[in-house]
């Protein structure tokens, strides 16, 4: 009910209000049109609007180059997801464990890796660790740091999910004589994971964004391929705009999918309160970078 506040901030406007809104609307539209025109003019003045400079991107050779990049991005993202999701569950269980040592270690790991930049870790794997004999293949120099950082964020998501499962479920499991571990595995976790599936899809967006750091380790994902392409074509602004558009479209589709899942799952289970709590860790720092 609170969600409607944005619509209640203003009255159904009367004649004067409507007139004022119309005026601001026209001014707003003019401003937007002006900005777009200015941007286009800036492109035109610097000769960046030429047909050949954009049609390059429908040539098969260019498309293949970018497609290779997309494949690299997908490989890195999927690999990172497949590795970090189960590890996230384990770390969440560690943080919720009764064993004090395990709990403190898990909490420490989560706090630490939510607070250091992914790029610093990647540089460590790229530049420092090879001197100590730890020299991973390029793909893994990208994926291992991504997993190490994202596991911390995922653990918090799973923990929120586990805590959001109704207490009665654990009590019922105990009443049926299930051991604690069995109850967690067979009763709590399946429900917790179902609760956080939409958030996990959102986290895929974060993983996909992180994979752009392949640019730094020279792993041929989309960002690196784009840079390689500009070396030959010198179409800097065009290439990076195209790549940015690809990222935005893919991530937008994933985000929309997450929202759709959220709505679908909540209408089925009907436990909106629990879901609200599980959705809380959205906006953890990692989703930004």
């Amino acid at each position: 009910m609170t969600a409607a506040a944005t619509r209640v901030l203003f009255d159904e406007p009367g004649p004067r209000g409507r007139a004022r809104i119309r005026i601001v609307t026209v001014i707003g539209l003019l401003l937007v049109a002006g900005l777009v025109a200015l941007a286009l003019y800036q492109f035109y003045r610097n000769g960046q609007l030429g047909r050949s400079r954009w049609l390059a991107f429908v040539q098969p050779a260019y498309l293949r180059f970018l497609a290779d990049g997309i494949r690299g991005t997908i490989i890195a993202t999927v690999l990172a997801a497949v590795l970090s999701f189960p590890l996230g569950v384990v770390l969440a269980l560690g943080r919720l464990s009764r064993n004090g040592l395990l709990r403190r270690a898990s909490t420490g790991y989560i706090e630490l890796f939510r607070s250091i930049p992914l790029l610093l870790l990647i540089y460590a794997f790229l530049l420092a660790l090879p001197r100590y004999g730890i020299n991973l293949p390029i793909l893994w120099k990208l994926v291992v740091p991504i997993v190490m950082v994202n596991v911390a964020a995922l653990a918090e998501i799973f923990r929120a999910g586990i805590l959001a499962v109704d207490r009665g479920q654990a009590e019922a499991a105990a009443a049926l004589g299930l051991r604690e571990g069995t109850a967690m595995r067979a009763v709590i976790l399946p429900q917790a994971i179902r609760l956080v599936i939409p958030t996990l899809v959102t986290q895929l967006v974060a993983l996909l964004k992180d994979s752009t750091l392949g640019y730094v380790v020279s792993y041929p994902e989309l960002m690196k391929q784009a840079q390689n392409l500009t070396v030959y074509t010198h179409l800097l602004v065009q290439t990076y705009l195209v790549v940015a558009a690809i990222y935005v479209v893919v991530n937008l589709l994933l985000s929309r999918f997450a929202v759709w899942l959220e709505r679908r799952l909540s209408s089925r289970t009907g436990s909106r309160a629990a879901r609200g709590r599980a959705a809380e860790p959205e906006g953890v720092p990692q989703t930004m970078a």
């Binding site: 800036q42 960002m223 990076y240």
Partner: peptide, 19 residues
């Protein structure tokens, strides 16, 4: 939905192309 690195590269290397 845009990766920050993409934005940085677009602004740092792309914008000079349009003056």
């Amino acid at each position: 939905n845009m990766p920050l690195l993409t934005l940085l590269i677009l602004v740092v290397f792309g914008l000079p192309d349009v003056g």
